[in-house]
């Protein structure tokens, strides 16, 4: 009888623990766009190194045609607020903050970088993903004919 009681307690404890665990683990917002070919785990662990590498290429060498750009990140990973507009880094729901708040790691990116997706005008053609190959081609042909 005593044993059964303890077993019940343990089971109950586990159940509570699991519910608790499920509720504190950050709920990572789903992204739009094509998934990372390297897989999410890879990006979760290496995103800062990938970005740091490309940022130096862009700032120092002027190479803007990089694989990773912050503007690209914030575009696919935008989280819409109740008004249907993407929320800024100020919001707790912001993609990066969901995990960064959880592990208490501060990020400085958005002190300088805009945290919402750039407007898709002609000025930001370079931020467009590979899916718009057709438009990129058109722009290229247009450039040639100048």
């Amino acid at each position: 009888m005593k044993r059964l009681f303890i077993a019940t307690l343990v089971l109950f404890g586990l159940a509570v623990g699991m519910t608790y665990a499920a509720s504190v683990y950050p709920e990572i917002p789903k992204a739009t766009g094509e998934p990372h070919p390297e897989g999410n785990e890879y990006w979760r662990i290496n995103h800062m190194d990938l970005l740091r590498h490309d940022r130096d290429l862009t700032v120092r060498d002027g190479i803007r045609d990089t694989d990773a750009s912050l503007a690209g990140c914030v575009t696919c990973h935008a989280v819409n607020g109740s008004d249907g507009q993407p929320v800024t880094f100020k919001s707790e729901d912001y993609f990066c903050r969901v995990c960064h708040d959880y592990v208490a790691v501060r990020i400085d990116c958005f002190q300088c970088h805009n945290s919402i997706p750039p407007k898709m005008d002609k000025a930001s053609l370079m931020y467009k993903g590979k899916t718009e190959t057709f438009e990129v081609l058109l722009a290229y042909i247009e450039g040639l004919s100048k």
Partner: peptide
């Protein structure tokens, strides 16, 4: 000063 709404192609921020 802290600023927001930077141009995506011209990032700038406080302390630099």
């Amino acid at each position: 000063e802290s600023i927001t709404d930077q141009k995506p192609y011209s990032p700038r921020g406080k302390g630099t």
